[in-house]
Design a protein around this nucleic acid. Structure first.
Lengths: 227, 227
DNA sequence: CGGTGTGAAAGTTTTCACAGCG
DNA sequence: CGCTGTGAAAACTTTCACACCG
């Protein structure tokens, strides 16, 4: 069920948040955290929208899904909004993550400094290659796959990152699910088939470039609208 | 302007394709290329949809934006569809790409094998750090940023990848644009402000995890719908 | 038959516009 | 005032359902 923000004691229980809105919430949060760093206290829907290319109305509607934080005539308080967003997105609690696949990309992700700020931390890494098992990178010792279940349980891991070649992704995904993981980010360029209670976010780097090549090719009309 | 597929001599000129549809086209293409590898000749909208979790009607509508390829009673020919999709997405032509930022992630992307299949190739890499300039990785010698413009022109680069820390991303983006690049993929966790003729695709790794943490937290209702 | 292409209906998201508040 | 929160309207996307084709 959708979380709603229990701000000021409301228990607004069942408004579910559309997926498009959730993706914009993450963008708002990113801007808000930057504004907070810069010491900005408040911001209006118009200003926040302008930073991201959205309309003021859209910002207000989106924030409306989360709760009521605005001060008419003033705007929103950055710190309140950050807190509320993180509650909704779930990043006020720590998320231990298990990574499978310690190739080039896996190594890079192990070292990526951006996860920590949002309370994610990679607490274990696995690889099928015996040559990689035992190596320690960024303080994490690479384990063999048969230790997956034990480690996931022991470290209370709920999320997995799949960073293996496409040919192995489905199998690895199933092992993560069997180990008890509730959601995975899949960097392999294949579609995973998993039970519906498991959440999947796919990141296909070639597809991102493809979207760009489409946009560039079809420039002039900024890739929207219908006849 | 939107490209339309000049299949069988039609010049269907001005149907613009909605962004959501374009992102699904990339997914169809990925499946189709796999099917092609496996030697499958034809596929129906229902089968293709099932592979990705979409309805048959949606697949047909989406493909309708691209042209008319279906054989009633049979389905679509994989090879024709792949060809058409690549025409639309622009990946029948080669895309030389310039990368800026040769940190962990940049290195991993330089070695990523998935770009080539879609006709992208990283033909130059740049870094502000003098210690990195001159190193050769994957056959690419890292250049200083002041060679950006010359190299972009010389190698006919139209796309850039920004893989620098957030604090430098806007400046780097501007330099890429000044050098003549028409679109960028931005891996830095900041919003870029660029002239509207430049296309931007953002990939924020922490945000992907955030979307997942939301989905997992709000499981039960699969994160869609409204009262 | 089994399957496409497509109008028309249903559903969702965005924009508009304005009452109301500090 | 300036800005929020929100119904009502407009725009867009998805699903339905069916004529038509090999």
């Amino acid at each position: 069920m959708a979380e709603s923000h229990p701000h000021a004691g409301e228990t607004l229980s069942d408004s579910t948040v559309p997926k498009v809105v959730v993706s914009r919430l993450s963008l708002y949060l990113r801007e808000l955290q930057r504004l907070q760093m810069d010491g900005q206290e408040t911001i209006s829907s118009g200003q926040l929208g302008a930073l991201l290319g959205f309309s003021d109305a859209q910002v207000r509607k989106d924030l409306g899904f989360v709760g009521q934080f605005g001060y008419p005539g003033v705007g929103y308080r950055c710190d309140e909004l950050v807190q509320a967003m993180r509650d909704i997105l779930g990043t006020n609690q720590p998320w231990p993550v298990a990574m499978v696949g310690v190739g080039n990309l896996g190594l890079a992700l192990l070292g990526y400094r951006g996860f920590g700020r949002q309370n994610f931390s990679i607490v274990a890494a696995f690889d099928a290659d015996p040559a990689k098992v035992g190596q320690t990178i960024q303080g994490i010792t690479v384990q063999p796959l048969d230790q997956l279940r034990a480690t996931v349980q022991e470290k209370h891991v709920r999320l997995g990152m799949i960073v293996v070649p496409g040919s192995q992704a489905q199998e690895v995904a199933e092992r993560l699910v069997a180990a008890g993981v509730e959601g995975v980010v899949n960097f392999a360029p294949v579609t995973l088939t998993l039970p519906p209670h498991v959440q999947v976010v796919g990141v296909d780097l070639a597809i991102e470039l493809e979207q760009l090549s489409f946009a560039v090719t079809n420039k002039g009309t900024p890739l929207e609208s219908r006849p």
